[in-house]
Design a protein around this nucleic acid. Structure first.
Lengths: 331, 331
DNA sequence: TTGTATGCGTTATCAT
DNA sequence: ATGATAACGCATACAA
């Protein structure tokens, strides 16, 4: 006799089928059971629309098949894509995902970690900007784009190679004097290697370059000033610009138009991330594409592979260049 | 004496503090406890880094403070934005979110519902395209953009008013002969009312109009053919086009350019959804903006308000028009 | 092969 | 006010 207004339990099923509790458990878990019993139990399950209570399961097994994803938001297309592919990679392995959007708030991030641990998740994948984040030793953790300390693997695209690739592409496309524009977290993180890679690429190709680096500001006026200062006789001193993200590249594209520059004829522009409009349409600009599905797979793999002898501290995945209209087309 | 390699429990805390189990529970839940005891317990909690196990809590309370979001993906910017704002609305109420990306797969959707119910979520918010979706009676459910049956509230923007607004805007901006282009699910759902609203608007403003409606196809060539067929002497028969989504509007924009049409001088274009590049930058096109934060709030509110006398079957939230470069600017 | 009993971590109802 | 104990739903070791 199932209680009103409450989901049926194994006990209800057992009573309905006229068998013992343990038998039901075995049927549910696919353990060997006499055929006649199995049928009766399965019928009772159907009839009552029984669902196992995975909280009770988790309580027993100390395993919940749930992982938490810590990410600033799902509105930024890069985060959105990462979220989706991690979700898919988890689903493939029958894991569920607790979405923890932090909005860049360190306090929120820390709270979410507590929440996640209270929820006894089996692990956490985190893309966070809180340098002082506390994560319990016993919770498996994989970081994206930032090394979080010993024992915590970090997965990222090969940002250094990406910066280098951007420089080489600009050189291949005929640029002589280029610029690198960057804004973002002042934290030491993987994406910051884009700068070093770009410099290396410029040096190896004999490109002269300038840098304009802003830390964590939300005003892009300084970039506009920087560009204006490099105008002479209606012509920009640079014939190629590498922006640290596609987002910045789009903003810079507008600035260039305002300054009367044609892209890509007067100045070529390369961004980073590989963001497509509406997720699947055109690239916003020529860009260094991050391998998001591979990053997602790698995070999940590193997190769930328990018997990994040593977890690699840093995994870099290869980037590619994609034409997106802001560079001269290559044959 | 806490077991190795396993999170501390209330029992561990009790032993550490030298008090009884119940006392620890009271401290954790903020129930009155003698000060000296409270201190000791709190110190023990600190020392052991104890976290309550919310699975055990949920098992007792039959309440988990978790809701599931069923959504096709988080890559499409509209879904991504919805996901983010629902996450925020839940967080505000101390609820967690299980993200269930379905990739439009009805089987996946159904599986996720089972999974969600196994996880004993307190409710489900779903944007799904499976007309035959089975959801247990006793699981609170709120649908987005599609009525799913009696007892299940549906939240959407005012799609009809949005269509109407698009027609009126085009009329205001001087259009005489317009077109409506649509692709998407053939299901009966709320967004389909955009068409009826647009027709109503056209009729009330004396606009002559044509429609081109494709069901659930991924090929946009037919739209290109449709437009080509309406060209004469290098000029398009329409001076205004309303597309069912911003995404389609962007595709159509490219087609128009290919046909040598200038936007907005020759033909004005209005989309629907209010998608911004990179989530926060410019609109891709002039558009009817969905009130995503309000939709999110409403879903969560409807889902969690238990003592609501009657749940409204359909809630429509107001849309607005936003200029995005593909219409003539209004003063 | 099937049934019974115990414990997972927590809360709540009791006595004390 | 505090401590002992039962119960939540399930899995499993053990007994039948």
């Amino acid at each position: 006799m199932q209680k009103e207004n409450s989901a049926p339990t194994m006990k209800d099923v057992a009573k309905e089928a006229g068998v013992a509790l343990g038998t039901v458990s075995k049927v549910v878990n696919g353990l060997p059971v006499g055929d006649s019993y199995r049928i009766r139990v399965e019928e009772a399950i159907q009839k009552l629309n029984y669902q196992v209570n995975s909280y009770a399961q988790g309580l027993k097994a100390n395993k919940t098949y749930t992982i938490a994803l810590l990410i600033p938001n799902t509105v930024d297309p890069f985060y959105a894509s990462l979220t989706h592919h991690i979700n898919m990679a988890l689903l493939k392995r029958k894991y569920r995902m607790l979405l923890c959007a932090t909005d860049f708030d360190p306090k929120q991030e820390q709270e979410y970690i507590s929440m996640a641990q209270q929820n006894k998740v089996d692990g956490i994948i985190g893309l966070t900007y809180n340098p002082a984040l506390m994560v319990a030793e016993n919770t498996p953790f994989v970081a994206i784009d930032r090394s979080m300390g010993p024992g915590i693997p970090c997965v990222a695209c090969d940002n250094f190679a990406g910066g280098q690739l951007a420089a080489e592409k600009l050189a291949d496309l005929g640029c002589k004097n280029v610029a690198f524009l960057r804004t973002g977290s002042a934290l030491i993180n993987e994406p910051n290697k884009r700068k070093a890679g770009f410099e290396t690429g410029c040096l190896s190709r004999g490109l002269s370059y300038e840098m304009k680096i802003l830390d964590d500001v939300d005003s892009y006026e300084e970039f506009e000033m920087f560009l204006s200062e490099h105008m002479e006789n209606g012509k920009l001193a640079f014939d190629g610009i590498f922006c640290v993200t596609d987002r910045l590249a789009c903003l810079v594209l507008k600035m260039l138009h305002k300054l009367g520059q044609r892209v890509p004829e007067d100045v070529q522009l390369i961004g980073f991330d590989g963001i497509r409009a509406f997720g699947t349409l055109d690239y916003h600009c020529s860009t260094i594409v991050q391998p998001v599905p591979e990053i997602a797979e790698m995070c999940v793999e590193l997190l769930l592979r328990e018997n990994m002898l040593v977890k690699p501290p840093l995994v870099c995945l290869p980037v590619t260049y994609a034409y997106g209209g802001t560079t001269l087309e290559t044959q």
